[in-house]
Simulated assay, not measured.
Amino acid sequence: GVANSAAQTALLAARPLCAPLRLDHFICELPALLKLACGGSRNATESQMFAARVVILLVPSAVILASYGAVARAVWAMRSSGGRRKAMGTCGSHLTAVCLFYGSAIYTYLQPTHSYNQGQGKFVSLFYTVVTPALNPLIYTLRNKEVKGAARRFLRSLGRGQVGQ
């Protein structure tokens, strides 16, 4: 990750920036910064950066999904349905968190710069930098029976309009 960030930063720093030099974003996302770049070899720089992002995002997510394929085969071969349920509950919460993070990161970083939408980019970057980490504790605690029961009681009370009474 550090090597990729250093390489991408060096590639972008070598490019001149055009006006306006104001970034309408929460954080310095590469697609938003590339929109400000100008000059002759823009396509070559963009292609190099895109290739690096493909490797950084797709290789780990492919390895994770392949490992989950192996886990699913092992779980499917279990004789105990209770053991299968427990294993799927454990793996399901992790897979949900991974899909939320990688899905939004892939959406942000693997779209061509010319079709990058500033508004959508801000929303998605906020989603994977703030919302996904904030949801992780909720995703993992919903495996706990007491937490599931409390969540069900809370949702039922919402349906009856009894919250805060």
Rank of each mutant, 00 (worst) to 15 (best):
G1Q: 09
A3G: 10
A3E: 15
N4H: 11
A6T: 08
A7K: 13
L11M: 11
A13L: 11
A13C: 10
A14I: 10
P16G: 07
C18A: 14
A19H: 13
A19R: 10
P20K: 04
L23T: 11
D24A: 10
H25W: 06
C28D: 12
C28P: 13
C28G: 13
E29M: 15
L30S: 01
P31Q: 09
A32H: 09
L33H: 10
L33E: 12
L33W: 06
L36K: 15
L36Q: 14
A37Y: 06
A37L: 08
A37V: 12
C38N: 13
G39D: 04
T45V: 05
S47V: 02
S47C: 08
Q48V: 02
F50S: 11
F50Q: 08
A51F: 00
A51T: 04
A52P: 02
I56M: 10
I56R: 05
V59D: 03
P60N: 06
V63L: 15
L65P: 02
Y68R: 08
G69H: 08
G69E: 04
V75H: 08
W76E: 11
W76Q: 12
A77M: 10
M78S: 05
S80Q: 11
S80M: 09
S81K: 09
G82M: 07
R84Y: 02
R84H: 06
R85L: 10
R85T: 05
K86W: 08
A87P: 06
T90I: 15
C91Q: 08
G92W: 00
G92F: 02
G92Y: 01
T96F: 10
T96V: 12
A97H: 12
V98Y: 13
V98E: 00
V98S: 03
V98F: 13
L100Y: 01
L100C: 12
F101H: 11
I106L: 01
I106T: 04
Y109K: 00
H114T: 09
S115T: 15
S115N: 14
N117P: 05
N117H: 07
G119P: 06
G119S: 14
G121M: 04
K122H: 05
K122R: 15
F123P: 00
F123Y: 05
V124Q: 00
L126T: 10
T129F: 00
T129D: 03
V131Q: 00
A134N: 05
L135E: 05
N136L: 13
I139H: 02
N144V: 09
N144T: 06
K145S: 14
K145Y: 11
K145P: 15
V147G: 01
K148R: 15
G149E: 15
A151S: 08
F154P: 04
F154V: 03
F154K: 03
R156N: 06
S157L: 08
S157M: 08
L158H: 01
G159F: 08
G159A: 13
R160G: 04
G161Y: 07
